[in-house]
Nucleic acid binder design. Structure first.
Length: 394
DNA sequence: ATACATACC
DNA sequence: AACTGGTATGTAT
C-alpha cells in the first residue's frame, strides 16, 4: 500500500525544509526539497528516517482506528476540568529573549569579510546556525554542511568557537540580570525573564535612569549635566544634547520600552541584535519572540481577549513542545491551529494520555507557566545556583 | 523498570 | 565522505 509517491510525501514531512522559522519565507521549496532528498537518498540516515516515518504512520493509524470506535456519547461525556480558566494569571510580564542567528552573528561581527556572504557555523557534517543571507538558499540550523553546500555552493562554513560564544553569552546575561536577577537561561542565546518587579520599580525612575548614550556602553548617561526637562517633548526620538557628543536615547516605563532598552543595551555591549517576546506567560512569550525576528519584538497585552485573538490562528507547530510528530498526528485529526485544538479537546482527551491532552488544553486556552524557575545569578561570576539537589541526584 | 521516542537548542 | 550532542520528558513494553 505504500507507493513510491506516498512514501516520498511521507518523508517530506520528516526531512524536508522546515520553513516554520524566521528568515525562510518565499523560498523555492520544491527545488530545495529535491536537493535535500537527492543528497540524502540511500544514506544510513535516510534509511533510518524511513523506518521512523513508518512508525509514526503506524501510530497515526492506531489513533485513527481508536477514533473510529468512539461513539458520540463517549465524546460528549468527556470531561475537561473547567477550572483552568479560573486560574488564568495575567499579572506577570514574561519576556523571552533570543539572540538573532547567534553563532553566525558573532562570527560576522568578528570577521567583516563574512558580512555580505552566505555563511553558516558548524562543519560539513552539521551546521549549528546560518546567517540570514544563507537562509535565502534554504540553509539552516541542524542541516549537514555538505547538503548546505549543494543548496548554496558559495556558502562559507566557519567552525564553532564555543568559548567565544560562551563569553559573549556572559555579557548578554549581565544585561538580562539587570531586568530579572532570577532569569532562566535556556541556552547560550536565549532566556526567559520575569520583568514584573523591574517594571514596578521602573515607574518611579527618573528619565536619567532610562537614558542611554549610543556611543557609550553599559551605564545610563551622566545625571549631573542632564536635565530631564530636555527630553520632555520627544520621548521617542533621540535628542542630542547641546555640548554633549553622541546621541542619547530615553526609554519609557512600559514593558515594551523596557524591553527595547534591554535590546538596545545588548546591542551596545555586544554589537549583536536580539529579538524578544512579551506576554503574560512563557509559552506565549516564546512564540512572540519569533514573530518579529530578527531585531524586533512583539507583545501580547495582558487581557484574555488579546491572548485568545493571538492564539486563534496560530499554527500548533509554532508552540514549543509541539514537534513534527505531534504536528502530523494532529493534522490527521484536521487540527492545524490552536483554535482547532480547542474545538476538538473532547476527542483529544480520549485519544491521548492525560499529560498530553492537558498540555493541548493549556495551549488552546493560551495558558502557560507564569513563574520562571527558581535560579539565582550571582553578580560577580554569573554562576547559576539552584536549590540543593537530593543526594541521589548528585 | 527499562528502552525507545519526541522535542528543544 | 559526510546527518551534532546534551538534556528533559513522554510513551511503550
Amino acid at each position: 500500500m505504500d507507493g513510491t509517491a506516498d512514501s516520498r510525501e511521507g518523508m517530506l514531512s520528516r526531512m524536508a525544509l522546515n520553513d516554520n522559522k524566521a528568515g525562510m519565507e518565499g523560498l523555492d521549496r520544491d527545488k530545495i526539497n529535491n536537493i535535500i532528498l537527492e543528497a540524502s537518498k540511500g544514506s544510513r540516515f535516510y534509511v533510518n528516517e524511513v523506518k521512523k516515518e513508518q512508525q509514526v504512520n503506524e501510530r497515526i493509524g492506531k489513533m485513527m482506528r481508536h477514533k473510529a470506535k468512539l461513539t458520540e456519547q463517549q465524546i460528549q461525556k468527556a470531561q475537561l476540568s473547567a477550572e483552568l480558566e479560573m486560574g488564568r494569571e495575567l499579572g506577570r510580564v514574561i519576556v523571552h529573549v533570543d539572540m538573532d542567528a547567534f553563532y553566525a552573528a558573532v562570527e560576522m561581527r568578528d570577521c567583516p569579510e563574512l558580512k555580505d556572504k552566505p555563511m553558516a557555523v558548524g562543519s560539513m557534517s552539521m551546521l549549528s546556525t546560518s546567517n540570514y543571507h544563507a537562509r535565502r538558499y534554504g540553509v539552516r540550523a541542524a542541516m549537514p554542511g555538505f547538503i548546505a553546500k549543494k543548496l548554496c555552493p558559495n556558502l562559507v562554513i566557519v567552525p564553532l568557537n564555543f568559548d567565544k560564544y560562551t563569553a559573549v553569552s556572559e555579557q548578554v546575561r549581565e544585561v538580562f540580570a539587570a531586568y530579572d536577577p532570577h532569569f532562566l537561561p535556556m541556552s547560550l542565546d536565549e532566556a526567559y525573564l520575569d520583568i514584573t518587579e523591574h517594571l514596578h520599580e521602573r515607574q518611579h525612575w527618573p528619565e536619567s535612569m532610562r537614558s542611554y548614550k549610543s556611543c557609550d556602553n553599559e551605564v545610563p548617561v551622566e545625571t549631573d549635566n542632564l536635565s530631564p526637562v530636555l527630553f520632555e517633548d520627544s520621548p521617542s526620538s533621540s535628542p542630542s544634547l547641546p555640548g554633549s557628543d553622541g546621541k542619547v536615547e530615553v526609554f519609557g516605563t512600559s514593558p515594551e520600552e523596557a524591553v527595547r532598552e534591554m535590546r538596545f543595551r545588548i546591542e551596545q555591549k555586544t554589537s549583536l541584535t536580539a529579538s524578544a517576546g512579551i506576554a503574560p506567560n512563557m509559552m506565549l512569550a516564546k512564540v512572540c519572540s519569533d514573530k518579529n525576528k530578527p531585531n524586533g519584538q512583539y507583545s501580547i497585552l495582558p487581557e484574555r481577549q488579546a491572548v485568545m485573538d493571538f492564539i486563534r490562528d496560530l499554527p500548533v507547530r509554532k508552540v514549543s513542545g509541539i514537534g513534527k510528530v505531534t504536528e502530523k498526528m494532529l493534522a490527521a485529526l484536521d487540527i492545524f491551529t490552536c483554535a482547532q485544538l480547542g474545538q476538538q479537546m473532547r476527542v483529544l482527551s480520549l485519544l491521548f494520555s492525560e499529560t498530553s491532552w492537558h498540555h493541548f488544553l493549556q495551549i488552546s486556552l493560551g495558558l502557560g507557566s507564569t513563574r520562571i524557575e527558581r535560579c539565582v545569578t550571582l553578580p560577580a561570576l554569573s554562576i547559576r545556583v539552584t536549590e540543593p539537589l537530593p543526594l541521589s541526584e548528585m
